[in-house]
């Protein structure tokens, strides 16, 4: 075994988690695609006919980055939280705790698998959207960068949630009561620029505003907040999550007695 890194373990966790996804392919992939399609029909077609354009972009196209972010965030949080909560809940976590793996390797395996899955989903939704509206991507490299950074950060957040939660209720309440509202508030379906004060200022405390704004910029070259700021907030969010995970493992919080 490599003394500095147990790559076999990272690979084993990753593949195991991915096989869980493959087993539940229908609910993993089909349901987000269906709900995205519904969003397009309701928001894009119905409302889009009343709202002509936002900053020179057709409403149907405007909501594409927001919809991808919505899926990316909720799926990352759900997958990563469930991935680590389930072994804790049924007790199979004993094996991971007794294995020669570092916390970094455990996180790499679980978060890597959750992020991979939601990135794939994000790309599927992008492809689905293209069937409804022509989607152009101004900065493809940045688009991918925001996609990956968001998926990883949200998966880290989900991992924290999965470590912290001590019931299924808590596991579900956080995405439902925090992530989804913040995502809607964060400009999935509109530009936060159209809001009046104090709401406009309030949205600036929603970190998801920065994610969606940066992501939308990579598509249409338009942004509610400065792109550099978007990137900075995303990286900061990731750093905070990493620090919390590191602290959890260091203290054995909710993992070891």
């Amino acid at each position: 075994m490599n003394p500095t890194m147990n790559l076999y373990a990272v690979r084993a966790i990753y593949l195991y988690e991915m096989s869980r996804t493959a087993r539940t392919l229908l609910q993993s992939v089909v349901s987000p695609v269906i709900s995205t399609t519904l969003y397009f029909i309701v928001f894009g077609a119905a409302i889009g006919t009343r709202i002509s354009q936002i900053d020179g972009v057709s409403y149907g196209a405007f909501i594409v980055p927001g919809l991808i972010m919505l899926t990316l965030l909720t799926q990352s949080v759900m997958n990563a939280s469930f991935g680590i909560y389930f072994p804790r809940f049924v007790g199979t976590i004993y094996e991971i705790l007794s294995a020669p793996v570092s916390s970094f390797e455990i996180v790499l395996g679980y978060v890597g698998a959750a992020a991979t899955k939601s990135i794939v989903l994000g790309l599927i939704i992008l492809a689905t959207s293209d069937l409804f509206v022509p989607v152009r991507i101004a900065h493809p490299v940045w688009m991918v960068a925001f996609l990956v950074l968001t998926a990883v950060s949200a998966s880290l957040f989900g991992f924290i949630l999965g470590l912290w939660a001590d019931s299924f209720e808590k596991l579900q309440v956080v995405p439902l009561l925090i992530i989804t509202p913040l995502t809607f508030l964060g400009g999935t379906f509109y530009s936060t620029n159209i809001l009046e004060e104090p709401w406009r200022t309030i949205t600036l405390f929603d970190p998801i505003v920065y994610l969606i704004s940066g992501f939308r910029w990579s598509f249409f070259n338009i942004a509610e907040v400065n792109v550099g700021l978007s990137l900075g907030v995303t990286l900061l969010f990731m750093a905070i999550c990493l620090a919390i995970v590191w602290w959890f493992f260091k203290t054995g919080y909710r993992l070891k007695n």
Binding site: A12, L15, Y16
Partner: peptide, 29 residues
């Protein structure tokens, strides 16, 4: 070390070889 825990804690939806592959990988083989 290999550990057989007291409680019957197993995965549910995997097959025996799949869960053994996870164990083997976790222990760096």
């Amino acid at each position: 070390i290999g550990l057989v825990p007291q409680e019957l804690t197993t995965d549910a939806f995997e097959t025996p070889p799949a869960t053994m592959r996870l164990s083997r990988g976790l222990f760096g083989k």
